Every structure is written in structure tokens, then in C-alpha cells.
Simulated scan of single mutants.
Amino acid sequence: MIRIFLMSLLFTSSCFINQLTAQDWAVKMFNKCEHNFGTVARGSDTVYRFEITNLYKQTMHITAVRSSCGCTSATIENKTIKTHEKAYIVAKFNTRTFTGFHGATLTVSFGAPYRAEVQVRVHGEIRGDVVFSPGAVVFGNVDEGFAEEQTLTVNYAGPKSWRIVDVTNDNDNLEVELEELSRSIGKVSYNLLVRLKPNVKVGYVKDQITVITNDPRKESRRIPLFVEGRVIPEITITPETLVLGDVAPGASITRKVVVRGKNPFRIVDINCEDDCFTFATQEDSKSLHLVGITFRPEEKTGAVRVPVQILTDRGNSRGATLTISAKVLDSSKPTPVQEGDSRQAGGISENVQVAGGTSN
């Protein structure tokens, strides 16, 4: 009986180890497998995104994610991941319902062609005595060149001696103003104003500021507050990526792009480091311009990828950038026949191929 039990245990352990080894390829795609939210305020928007990068030649599919605890919800951003593309598992701490120390294990499932499961973990402490309202600084969409402000309230339930002693951030584009509203037995309130400066670059703003208190417990003195928004460009270009395809040496190809502005503007300059490109612009001041782009390759062959910057007469030479790509054919060589898909091998280590090599 003991012998049968030991053999069964050995077999189960062996299966577990083989399964673990077989799924190592999936773990390698994650930037990390654990995150500590730290100490956060009740009602605060507390989110972490686990980054997944497809290192392999095959397209990967995330089929599901489940959480072991109601204190954390999980969602998937981008279920289908092609080679070198990224996906995210978004873990959101439920700070409105839970308080105290909590943690959760998130199980991420990958489907065909290669099935696997990867577990990541989050944990942190939700303070029930400190409440942010609203739970984060959300600027939303902000026009380029304009400032934006958001105000939130910090409420503390506890001793009258509690104070916010400082508010810090490492982002020079954010300004913070703190104002004490009231102080009474059992309750302290502050107004916290966060300002986004007008010189912020176009794109997403994702950062955090830290509220520092005089709590007796050292680990509870620093409370993060998340800041997010998006600066919308005044000048846009369509398409942002211009694909010219195959071009023979000495031949030429012309395409047009559309440049739009929220106000009338003139195009004053176009920066491009490749002399094989020429540009045709319009001198009028208007809110929509058509720019002609001609590519005439000379002797060089192979892939071409060139950034192009279009500058306008708007403040600070605001403009837009596009990327142009093409392939200059080598006329002295015949076009190679594309290789067919390689046949799948039996083992996972042979099937899953690293881009540029084979996964071990």
C-alpha cells in the first residue's frame, strides 16, 4: 500500500514538474509576476498592468484571466499577440469595498496553438481611515498648449493630530497645491489641487504623486495617488505611417498625406534626413493641407524606414511626425520564393520558436 502511494506521489510530482517546465516559455513573456500596491487610500483608483511581450514567431492568444479574490479584478488588453507585440493583464485593487491587507492570484490562460497557464500575484494594504474623493486625478483629454486642473478631497477619520506634511512628485509637468479645510475631533480634511502644465508633450500622461503623512507607522506614511490624462495634438497627420511598398531603383512613387489643425496654419518646414524624398506643400494658411511625398531611390537597396517631421507656424513650431517605409528592390537578383510554413514538431520546445531563434 505504501509502495503504491509513493509511486502515485512520484508520478504526480513528475507530471507537475514536466508541466511547469513546458510552460516556462509562457512565463518568459511577462515583465514580472508579482506587484505590491503598497499602502493605498480607501476609494483610490489603484491599478497595475502586467506587461506581456510575444517573444516568439507564432501568434499567441490569451483566452481568459481569473482572480482568486474579490479584492482584485482582472481584465485583458489585446487578447491576440503577434510577434513582438504587447498585451496587458490589468489588475484593479477593489479599494471601495475592502480594507486591510489583501492579496490575489491572477491566473492567465493561453489558448491554441499552445496552451499554458501563468499565475501572477498582487497584494497591498487598503487604509480604511484615509479616503480620496475622487479616487484619482483624471484630466481626460487636454488640448496641446493648455493647462488643466483637478481638485480632490482627502478625508481622514482618526486623531485630530493627523497631518499631511508633504506632497511629492518626480514629474516637472505637474504642480500641486494643498489646502487644509477642517480639523476636528475624529476628522481631518484637505483639498488637493493638481495642475497639468501647458508645456506637456503630446501623448498619454500616466504618473503618480505621493501624499506623505505623520502617521506613527512608517509603512503607512506614504500614500500614492494616481494621475492620468491625454494631451491631444493641435496638428495631426493621416496616415501616421505611410507604406510605399516595393520600389525599383530609379523609379519613383508619389503619395499624399493629410495634415489637419484645429486652427488655420502654414507649413513652414519639413525635416527629412533622406535625400531620396521630396515634398510638395501649399503656402496658404488653412486648417487642412495636402502634402505630396515623392520617393525616388537611387542605388541603395533594401528596407527604408524614415521619420519625417512637418513644422507649422503655430506656437513653438508645433507640427506632426509620420514614418515612411518602403523596400527598394535589388534588380540584379531574382525574387526569392517564400518558404512554406514549417511543420509542427511534437514537443512544445520545438514548436514555440523565439523570433530570431528557437525557445529552449
Rank of each mutant, 00 (worst) to 15 (best):
V131N: 00
L329Q: 06
K286I: 03
N360T: 12
T83S: 01
T39F: 06
G128W: 01
K218H: 11
I185L: 07
V308N: 06
T21F: 08
E240N: 12
G340S: 10
V258S: 12
A136G: 10
G38C: 00
A345C: 14
Q150M: 01
G302A: 11
L193G: 02
F132E: 04
V194N: 10
G128T: 04
D284S: 12
E34Q: 08
R255C: 05
S68Q: 05
E34K: 11
G145Y: 11
Q338D: 14
F277K: 12
A147Q: 14
S73C: 08
G103C: 08
E179H: 13
K197S: 14
L174T: 02
D246G: 08
R115S: 15
S317T: 03
E117C: 12
I89R: 01
F277N: 14
S317I: 08
T80V: 09
K57P: 04
V131C: 01
K86W: 08
N78I: 09
A320F: 04
Y56G: 01
E180C: 13
T301E: 13
G135H: 10
F226G: 05
I17W: 06
M7R: 14
V337Q: 10
G346P: 03
Q344V: 12
Y48V: 00
R96W: 05
V328N: 09
T323R: 11
G250Y: 06
I253M: 03
T95F: 01
P297I: 08
P224L: 01
T294W: 02
E117P: 14
T105N: 07
D284F: 07
I324P: 10
P198I: 05
V120K: 06
S342D: 10
F110N: 00
E144M: 09
V354R: 13
E177G: 03
Y56L: 02
Q23D: 15
V118A: 07
D269V: 04
L178I: 04
S285G: 02
S182I: 01
R296M: 15
R96D: 04
Q344T: 13
S73V: 02
V165M: 00
R66D: 15
R318M: 05
I185N: 02
S317R: 14
C71H: 06
V176P: 05
T97V: 10
F139S: 02
R121N: 09
E219P: 00
H289L: 04
I81M: 01
L311K: 13
I17D: 07
I348P: 15
T278Y: 08
V258P: 06
H102M: 03
G38T: 07
A22Q: 13
G145I: 11
E339G: 12
E273W: 07
I17C: 04
P134T: 10
D143H: 15
F50G: 02
F101K: 07
V291C: 00
E148V: 07
D341M: 12
T95K: 10
L181N: 07
S287I: 06
I267L: 03
K82D: 09
I2N: 15
A74S: 14
C69H: 08
S331Y: 02
I209L: 15
N171V: 08
P233V: 00
M1N: 10
A303T: 13
E34T: 12
I164V: 03
V138I: 15
G261P: 11
V268L: 05
V259T: 09
R343M: 14
C272A: 05
S161L: 01
